[in-house]
Amino acid sequence: MSDPGKPSVPGGSSGESRRLSRSDAAYVARLARLDISDEELDLYADQLEAVLDYAAEVDSVDTTAVAPMAHPLPLVNVLRPDEPADSLDRDEVLAQAPASEDGRFMVPRILGEAP
């Protein structure tokens, strides 16, 4: 994979169409931990650009002094009593893991670590 680097600067709030290059798509795929073939990259770059062009219509809405809405209902700081309760059975959970050992999830070598 070529070094995709950072994508080009977004179009700001002007509403003009944003170009999503193949290297932008490669960069995004790497961030998302997706191995994507060159053919797929071309397809996704085109399709994502079409969706982003459409979605950029949000730019035409005046949101001056409008707060972002992250949650439809005003629930904040939801707490529960700090009481011990049953948790999931460890063996049942680990039985579903691709690999486990000694009561733990097992993973391949972490990059940079000695084998």
Binding site: P7, L20, V61, A70
Partner: peptide, 20 residues
């Protein structure tokens, strides 16, 4: 892409304001 550095406010942040 919409959450990546440099784009978050232009896309996700803007969309959340439109939601309001």
């Amino acid at each position: 892409y919409a959450l990546s550095a440099g784009y978050y406010e232009a896309y996700y942040g803007k969309a959340q304001r439109v939601r309001t």
